[in-house]
Design a protein around this nucleic acid. Sequence first.
DNA 1: TCTTAAATTGTAATTATTCCAAAACAACAA
DNA 2: TTGTTGTTTTGGAATAATTACAATTTAAGA
Lengths: 141, 141
Amino acid sequence: MDKYVKELKSHKLKITSQRLDILSFLDENRVHPSADEIYKAIKINSPALSKTTIYNNIDVMVKNNIIKAFRFMDSNELRFDYKTTEHYHFICRKCKNIYDVDISLPYLEKFEHYKHKVEEFYGDYKGVCENCLNKKKQKKK
Amino acid sequence: MDKYVKELKSHKLKITSQRLDILSFLDENRVHPSADEIYKAIKINSPALSKTTIYNNIDVMVKNNIIKAFRFMDSNELRFDYKTTEHYHFICRKCKNIYDVDISLPYLEKFEHYKHKVEEFYGDYKGVCENCLNKKKQKKK
DNA sequence: TCTTAAATTGTAATTATTCCAAAACAACAA
DNA sequence: TTGTTGTTTTGGAATAATTACAATTTAAGA
Ligand SMILES: [Mn+2]
Ligand SMILES: [Mn+2]
Ligand SMILES: [Zn+2]
Ligand SMILES: [Zn+2]
């Protein structure tokens, strides 16, 4: 059985082509797309698709922890991620690519001397990516 | 000379009552308000105020590093901070209060083995604050 | 196959923010 | 102190992202 079908069933969500499309798009295109980008990409092969369906499903999938939502400090649109395990993001201010950052930091322990109960941490980095740095170097030559 | 006047002058920005109002509001109300909250608060005593003025000035002040802008992972509105030195935020999911987190974490060093050049880091915490935790305890009694 | 609750759709509404052009104003110089 | 000029303010309109809603369709179990 298809892994997306399995995933949806395990959360007692109905199997619809729209949901399968969203999941496979996110899985196969790890670019952290926005709702609109997901919509446009899927609509090509399924012209009847409604944007509300994208929002509805994104919503229910985030709530069921099937996908992850995040946004950057200065961006006004939510982005989505097939990868739900703990990781952070690095965005390049030149090419705008978003890279996964797979480091685990001692956020929660460091926070201990505060009396609040920490449940979630969110973090992201900004800078210039390796590719863009190299391009710059080559130009200088 | 007033400290807000001095601050604006040091960035060669014109002194206007709107700018002084925004600065003193942010300085005296460290609640990390949104643009709309700033607008509503100042409008009480200056009814002619336009929301565009708030956005314009917020913008120019952020660019001049006089104030800081940030947003939470799940919130759709930008929030503003009079405090511009490095710090992070903790938001309580019960009372929605936003607390400053004054710890310095080794974000940049840890990131070194990536080849990207990190210029900025943004992070926030979510959980239940001390006050809300105590309220819960008292109820149980 | 029948039933029904859940999902999808299109449109309208809302929210946050940006754009724009006219009027008002702060700062500097005469 | 007044005049000039470039900046700021204003209100209204435009845009972008998201949410609300009601009618229609559909997945899945009996
Ligand atoms: Mn990711
Ligand atoms: Mn703060
Ligand atoms: Zn890049
Ligand atoms: Zn609280």
